[in-house]
Amino acid sequence: PPQTPIRAAMTSIQQLRGDLTSSGDQPSTNLATYFKNCTVDPMQAVLSRLETLEQAFSQRFGLAVGPRCIVLGCQRFKLGVRLYYKIMEAMLKSEEKRLSVQNFSKLLNDSTFHTSLLACALEVVMATYGGGSFKTGGYNHDAAGDPVETDLCFPWILDVVDLPAFDFYKVIESFIKAEPTLSKDIVKHLETCENLIMERIAWRTDSPLFELLKQEHGGGAADQVETPAS
């Protein structure tokens, strides 16, 4: 049968769900071992962060697509969590091989790393489901006439998990390296996110990039950094 956009989306969703059937909702034995090898075991912090972010995600998803669809948001979040664990394990295996160390305490206790990785996994899930399918130009109005968000496209996820785009940028390449089965369309989507960040979002006034540029060049050269407007 001819390929249609809906058929293509269905195939991608089935593939993603299929790839993640063997990944659990909890860290695998291997991943749990990486956690245990840490000077400070990050497990409790990981679980607690996921709980907080699941609430934020479900709430914002419900606001965007209607309270009756909250269950869909929960399903997507759960798929995102499976992908997050799967990619984290692959990244750590690759780092263990590269650095010949098994204690990743600093990285695994870095909240920004976890939030970035989870945001990337959720973005992959949202893009696979067609994050744009709910897009109606930005805002709809609810029964009371108040605006409700309907655009779940990137960078929506950054706002939901409260993550600077600059930090999200850091995980993209390693994420693609760690998951060779990502479809061509998804890789292209992540590349589009990367370009958006590099060209626009990372240069917004509140970006951590400016502070890093200042540190890199020393305090005296700080005034040489161009303003976001430039």
Partner: peptide, 21 residues
């Protein structure tokens, strides 16, 4: 396969990107 351009060198990884090595 895809056309993504990998920019990280072999000696760079996620640990360096988050300043954790």
């Amino acid at each position: 396969s895809h056309d993504y351009h990998f920019g990280l060198e072999d000696h760079e990884g996620i640990s360096e990107l988050f300043d954790c090595d």
